[in-house]
C-alpha cells in the first residue's frame, strides 16, 4: 500500500514539476474560467437576487469547461513526447498511472479554483468562500479529474482530441455539475447542510462510482 501511494505521488509530483516549469495547465484553466465568468457579468444585469440565482450555474459551468481544457493539456504533454509509452513501459499498474495522473489533475483544478472563487465572489457579490462550498468544490474536483483523466486517455491518440474530450467529458459529468450547482445555490441562499445533503450524497456517489469505473476504463484504453 505504501509503495503504491509512493508511486502515485511520484507520478503526480512529476506532473506538478512539469506544470511549475511550463505553467500551461493552471493558467489555461484560470484564464478560461475567469473569461467565462467576466463575460456573464456583462451579459446579465446582476442584481443581488439574480446573482444568487444564476451565479452558481455560471461558476460551475466555467469550472467544468475550463477543467476539461486543462486536463486535455496535461495529456497532450504526454502525447507530444510519447512519454505515455514511457510510463506504460514501467512495471507500474495502469491503475496507479491513472491515480497519479488524476491526483495531478485534481491539484491543478483545485489550485485554479483557489484563484477563480474569490474573483467570482467579487464579481457576482455573493459569498462562496465558505466551508460548505469548499467541500462541494473538492467533491466536484475529484469527479472532474477522474472522469477527465480516463476520457483524456481515450482521446489522446485521436487526431481531434480537443473536440473528443469535451464531447465525452461534459455529458458524463452533468450529474456532478447539477449537484454542485444546486448545492452552491442552497449555500448562497442561506441554506444549511441539511438543505443540500441529497445533492452532496449524489456528488459522493458519483465520485465513488466514477473513480472506480474510470480506473478500470483507463487500463483498457491505454493500450492500442
Amino acid at each position: 500500500m505504501g509503495a503504491a501511494l509512493a508511486t502515485v505521488w511520484t507520478l503526480a509530483r512529476k506532473d506538478l514539476l512539469l506544470e511549475l516549469r511550463s505553467r500551461d495547465i493552471v493558467l489555461a484553466i484560470v484564464v478560461f474560467a475567469l473569461l467565462v465568468i467576466t463575460i456573464f457579468t456583462f451579459a446579465i444585469e446582476l442584481t443581488p437576487s439574480r446573482s444568487r440565482d444564476v451565479g452558481p450555474g455560471v461558476l460551475w459551468a466555467a469550472v467544468a469547461f475550463a477543467g476539461v481544457l486543462g486536463i486535455n493539456r496535461s495529456f497532450a504533454m504526454e502525447a507530444e513526447g510519447d512519454t505515455l509509452d514511457g510510463l506504460m513501459l514501467t512495471p507500474v499498474s495502469r491503475e496507479l498511472i491513472f491515480f497519479g495522473k488524476s491526483l495531478a489533475n485534481f491539484i491543478f483544478i483545485t489550485v485554479a479554483e483557489i484563484v477563480i472563487f474569490p474573483v467570482f465572489e467579487a464579481l457576482f457579490n455573493i459569498n462562496v468562500l465558505r466551508i460548505e462550498t469548499i467541500v462541494i468544490a473538492l467533491l466536484a474536483s475529484i469527479g472532474f479529474s477522474a472522469v477527465g483523466t480516463a476520457f483524456a486517455a481515450v482521446s489522446v491518440r485521436v487526431r481531434s482530441r480537443e473536440i473528443m474530450l469535451p464531447l465525452l467529458f461534459l455529458p458524463t459529468v452533468i450529474p456532478l455539475i447539477m449537484a454542485a450547482v444546486e448545492s452552491t445555490s442552497v449555500v448562497v441562499n442561506g441554506g444549511s447542510w441539511s438543505g443540500f445533503s441529497a445533492w452532496l450524497q449524489l456528488a459522493i456517489a458519483f465520485d465513488v462510482i466514477f473513480v472506480i469505473a474510470s480506473a478500470v476504463l483507463f487500463q483498457f484504453v491505454l493500450e492500442e
Binding site: L18, S22, E80, G81, D82, G86, L89, P91
Partner: peptide, 18 residues
C-alpha cells in the same frame, strides 16, 4: 515482464521540460 524489459523505440519517451 516489464521488469525484465528495456526498450528504445522511435521517440526517446523523455519529458522535454525535465
Amino acid at each position: 515482464a516489464r521488469l525484465s524489459l528495456g526498450a528504445v523505440l522511435h521517440s526517446p519517451m523523455l519529458y522535454g521540460d525535465m
